[in-house]
Design a binder for these strands. Structure first.
Lengths: 352, 352
DNA sequence: TCCGGCATTGCAATCGTGTGCAGAGGGGGA
DNA sequence: TCCCCCTCTGCACACGATTGCAATGCCGGA
């Protein structure tokens, strides 16, 4: 077994040339003689040579890698994004370094840290419910000229590039949709406001108010976990005048709502309409398929990646921080319909 | 603005020492005087110094990164795995480099290629339906001493480390479960055999035969896509003696089966039982929750990562290639139950 | 015959760290 | 006083590649 490490130098000795020539030959430089080049390339192939990318990276001061920071990947919202970003990055000639910042983004700073230090040519950060945890770090990096783009809603994003979906608009269109169907008593299943305000819920409520049916306090349920969802739905169904529609602020919550509603012997959408937000794959697995709001994720990721690549390439370095907002669109499926009479609803049996 | 790159050398000049001392100080080496060390560390912090990891990697011949190759991440099967591997890797002090080999693993070789060349200290490859596409590449790498571990079922894995779930055993327990419930006419919704044989289906059929109810050909449906599933289920339900239970070889397919069955006005599990395989999150979102088979993913990933780490650390380099098999377990939920009488089943209305 | 230019190759510096080894300086014991 | 040892620091090389510049040899034209 040959223990010697195969380097340019090694190939050079074998081929009887200098390592510079080998380097140029493998880079297909026109500076080296055609036959020599062919001979060296053949030799490299035969000896199973692999260029040491780390050394190369050091010399050329670039890694052709971009770091992607995402809270987690078991929540079905993120994988699709990762997939798209990975594809886009590959098209641009970059490979991906994935970092999970944790469900509560407790590792976000650590992730960003491990990505800087010249390991990644640029960094993409997808925020979670807590907003941009590593804000000061990002500011420092950007000030130092490191390409960074953030995705998610962050207030006062004056100092860095931001790509965000317009959640408020999405919320408004859901509300408009339900009201147009004839719903009056509409419940909201939401989360206590992290990151300033949860725009999708705010937009939803705004639109309800505009349309003349402001959200009734007893129909506003705050949930933090699965159990809250179950008890919340139970509470709603137990009201003397139950809602005819429920807006769950995430598709994954809507799934739980489904189970709870259907276990109570009620039918979606005949007895009660349910709408979600995110347009996960899950939304089409549910039965009936879920009406929801989703950003067309391709343009979103496209903006995300191409903005970063632009920064990395360093064309117009004076380009001020950008904020790109993408408006999501409502996807109407079978889980929302016009309300039937309340009498019918209340006469239905309820599971013990 | 200070355009000078901040390096050890820069700090050294500022502190009036040599770059060696700075290097040692930042590594908290006992070789440097306590006060000097403190002074240098303080200075480094103030100037926002970041160690150039690429240079370091070159010098120490290690990157503390492991590459993870996964077919895709939009199919809900993989994200959980990625999450676990990422966590395990972080615990072991490694960061993750994610590479997507594509739904049909068409990029698998390219992924492995971009991971070798000293970019990653070790490589984890999760195969897809096509088995180990980059097999020869893996053999070469392993022969060259590069740490590589493969997950998935691969035949003749004599030359490299392999971690696999025992799909056949899972299939057998599903069959046993259904037969024990009293089912006799059981349908299988499977895929044409990629990668030799699709063990979960093989195991399922074996066990049926052992129990005395070999699979009837008309109840064996081969599907390649969503549409096949729909038409397949329709065909099954249209039989003069429809099955009382359906085994879908993947949870995600079971979801489609659900919709088709429920749209036909039939109830799960009262009219027909449905079981899946994989135990995705999805399985609990469905209603009723899906009976399925799943590997407890934590030990699986644990074996996966720790085997690789062991190779990276290079303790007992003579350790022969390992094959670790993990037996999945059946998770009984509400989608499977004893069959009711066929008369009732056939008298049910069917949606137009 | 001489010279200029072109094609090709090698030399050597460089990227930023890590580290073996030598050397400086100081303190303590004989 | 001398010497040894211990603590600390710096020199210099190495990691494996890229690349500007110099050098070589050859050919053709004057």
């Amino acid at each position: 077994m040959n223990e010697e490490v195969i380097t340019l130098e090694y190939l050079a000795r074998k081929a009887g040339v200098s390592h510079s020539t080998v380097s140029r030959a493998l880079a297909d430089s026109p500076l080296v003689n055609a036959e020599t080049k062919a001979r060296i390339q053949k030799l490299a192939l035969e000896s199973g040579f692999e260029l040491n990318q780390v050394a190369r990276n050091l010399k050329v001061r670039a890694t052709k890698m971009i770091g992607l920071v995402v809270p987690e990947v078991s929540n079905p919202f993120y994988p699709e994004l990762v997939q798209q970003v990975a594809d886009q990055a590959r098209n641009a000639g970059f490979t991906l370094q994935l970092q999970l910042s944790g469900r509560n983004q407790e590792l976000e700073s650590a992730c960003v840290g491990s990505l800087s230090g010249s390991r990644a040519d640029g960094i993409l950060i997808v925020t979670g419910e807590h907003g941009l945890v590593a804000r000061s770090q990002v500011n420092t990096l950007v000030a130092a000229g490191k390409p960074v783009v953030v995705m998610g809603w962050v207030e006062d994003a004056d100092h860095f590039d931001l790509v965000a979906g317009d959640d408020a608009a999405g919320g408004r269109s859901l509300a408009a949709h339900l009201v147009a169907l004839g719903h009056v008593r509409i419940a909201v299943l939401g989360k206590a406001a992290h990151r300033g305000a949860f725009d999708r819920m705010v937009g939803f409520r705004e639109e309800l108010a505009v349309r003349g049916f402001p959200l009734h306090p007893e129909l506003n349920i705050v949930v933090e976990n699965e159990n809250d969802v179950r008890s919340g739905v139970a509470k709603l169904l137990g009201l003397s005048a139950p809602p005819t529609a429920i807006f769950a602020y995430q598709d994954s919550l809507a799934a739980t709502v489904y189970r709870q509603v259907q276990q109570s012997g009620l039918s979606i959408p005949d007895d009660i309409s349910v709408v979600g937000f995110d347009n996960l794959d899950l939304a089409t697995y549910l039965s009936p398929r879920l009406t929801t709001v989703g950003t067309h994720i391709t343009p979103l990721c496209s903006a995300f990646v191409s903005l970063l690549v632009r920064r990395i390439q360093g064309i117009d370095p004076e380009l001020p921080p950008q904020t790109i907002v993408i408006t999501p669109k409502i996807i109407v499926r079978e889980s929302s319909n016009s309300p039937r009479s309340h009498a019918l609803l209340r006469s239905k049996p309820r599971a013990s």
